[in-house]
């Protein structure tokens, strides 16, 4: 069953006019139960807005979604009891201790007190639980948020940039907790602008750019779509020109190792035949696995280009 399914979900902030922002634009995707789903996109692409609509704090402008198959208000209330989520930064009462904050969260979720200690234990905060939230370091705040998310033992866990602002050690710890949860069969929906994070923790990914989904699927699929080859020849210039003109080519990039060409079909024989026909004889050819980063940059190039334009004035 789908844990999350959206259909043309759209959010426009402000009433239509020059000042309004189309933050999320007709996005449709589905998260199956048991998946660790990465929601990847650059800053301002609409990740938080999308999650806000799923958890019920932001009203969609149009489109629809369902959680565990429910889409009516009453069903959504019930379905939301099966999820745990944090948006953006950890949100707690600064004047209360970590433990008291979890007491409030537990009361809201209708969970008994014994769970509080378990969750504090899980994120390694037991010894600082009596200290006030405002005295916590960012890493501790993030871990408290994770503990609060876990209180109701949710089937679906939604995390918005859980690694944000953490040092490598902290990121590794969060990743470890996510792995443990995934092994327990939880569905995890995780937004991030960090590719390596998604690549390391997620089984599936959706890439969002300027409010639109530009790629979606299993990480291996998105990364390996079509196929890429690493090519070398005596004359790299001529090789680049020729392969760019090849009809199946989707993108060409020069790297230190040679020319990387992404192709719709990885029919090696046709490529070599075509290049030989152009008078280019390969000295090296190997399948090349694009990293998620390369796919991401390819797909979100629009934003990067405009940044570069701004930077170069």
């Amino acid at each position: 069953m789908h844990a999350i399914q959206t259909s043309n979900l759209t959010k426009r902030y402000g009433t239509s006019g020059a000042k309004s922002v189309l933050a999320v634009d007709r996005i449709s995707f589905a998260v199956e139960e048991g998946q660790v789903f990465g929601f990847l996109g650059p800053n301002g692409s609409g990740k938080t807005t999308t999650i806000g609509m799923l958890v019920g704090t932001i009203k969609p402008t149009s489109g629809s979604f369902n959680l565990f198959g429910a889409s009516d208000p009453k069903g959504l209330m019930v379905a939301r009891a099966r999820l745990g989520a944090t948006l953006e930064t950890p949100n707690f009462y600064p004047y209360m201790s970590g433990r008291d904050n979890l007491c409030v969260a537990a009361a809201v979720k209708g969970v008994g007190r014994p769970r509080i200690d378990e969750c504090l234990e899980l994120v390694g905060l037991s010894d600082r639980a009596k200290h006030r939230f405002k005295t916590y370091s960012l890493g501790m705040k993030q871990r408290l948020a994770l503990a609060a998310t876990m209180l109701n033992d949710p089937e679906l866990i939604i995390l918005d940039e859980p690694a944000n602002g953490l040092d490598p050690q902290g990121i590794r710890e969060i990743r470890e907790v996510i792995r443990v949860l995934a092994n327990r069969g939880k569905t995890i929906f995780l937004s991030s602008h960090l590719l390596t994070e998604v690549e390391r923790t997620c089984s599936h990914v959706s890439i969002i750019r300027q409010g639109r989904i530009v790629a979606c699927g299993a990480v291996a699929e998105v990364v390996g779509e079509g196929g890429a080859m690493l090519l070398r020849a005596e004359d790299p210039e001529a090789l680049a020109g020729a392969i760019r003109a090849y009809p199946e080519t989707t993108s060409v990039r020069r790297t230190d190792e040679g020319i990387v060409a992404a192709l719709n079909a990885d029919d090696v024989a046709s490529v070599t035949r075509y290049l030989a026909g152009q008078g280019i004889y390969l000295t090296y050819l190997a399948p090349y696995r694009l990293s998620l980063e390369e796919v991401f940059i390819d797909l979100t190039q629009g934003a990067v280009d405009s940044m570069a334009e701004i930077a170069s004035g």
């Binding site: 958890v55 019920g56 948006l87 949100n91």
Partner: peptide
């Protein structure tokens, strides 16, 4: 300002 209202709603209180 603390965004705890939002978190309360996420945690299961409706608005």
């Amino acid at each position: 300002t603390w965004r705890t209202a939002r978190q309360n709603v996420i945690d299961g209180l409706s608005k």
